[in-house]
Amino acid sequence: MANAVQTHESVAAADAHAPHAHIDHDTNTGISNTKLGMWLFLASECLLFGGLITTYLLYKHPLEGPTPKEIFDIPFTSTSSFVLLMSSLTMVLAVSAIERGDHQRLRIWLGATALLGATFISGQIYEFTVFVREGLGFTTSRFSSAFYTLTGFHGVHVTVGIIMLMSLVLLSLRGKLPEHRAETVEIIGLYWHFVDVVWIFIFAVVYLIP
């Protein structure tokens, strides 16, 4: 028990006095392997989404079927984008909450992030349904295939993020997410912010640039 109290006190002290609450790990880089792995994964994801965005740019002028200008509902997508952007705020507040040991707020912010993510996904499903009803299926044109593949891949990433966030909420409810494991929340937060960053790119390149 004395060790446990010591662990708490040292973590709290490190958090209190470290300017940015990042504690050094006993590795060559001073970064935990999981965090390093997540950043490497995110770097590789740049290549995945870069490829999908490039394909979209090459095929954005359809040879048949509806054009992007005819089919996109910019006000609706703007609202969805805003929702996803705000989920990044709730995510970072969740990380902040666990770093100071506030588990109730952690669960509230994680739940809010998952809810905002689910709202975004619902909007995407609705958007896809409307597009299909208006005659833009996956195989209608090269534009539609590139568009659905790009936004669909992003949607899958958001869905995976929601599952991870809900898992964190469950872990926290069962008392298996103490503040010395704050880095777990931070790492999932990195994934979530990356998904948001990718959407910032997609929103501008796919929807807004004429």
Binding site: P19, H20, H22, T29, G30, I31, K35, L36, W39, L40, L42, A43, S44, E45, C46, L47, F49, G50, G51, S88, L89, M91, V92, E186, G189, L190, H193, F194, D196
Partner: peptide
């Protein structure tokens, strides 16, 4: 700011920018 890259170890900045630069 949200991903804390500004506050974290420089190696993470290098890793991420390597991916972004390579992709771009």
């Amino acid at each position: 700011i949200f991903m804390h890259l500004r506050f974290d170890k420089p190696i993470l900045t290098w890793i991420f920018w390597a991916g972004v630069t390579l992709a771009a």
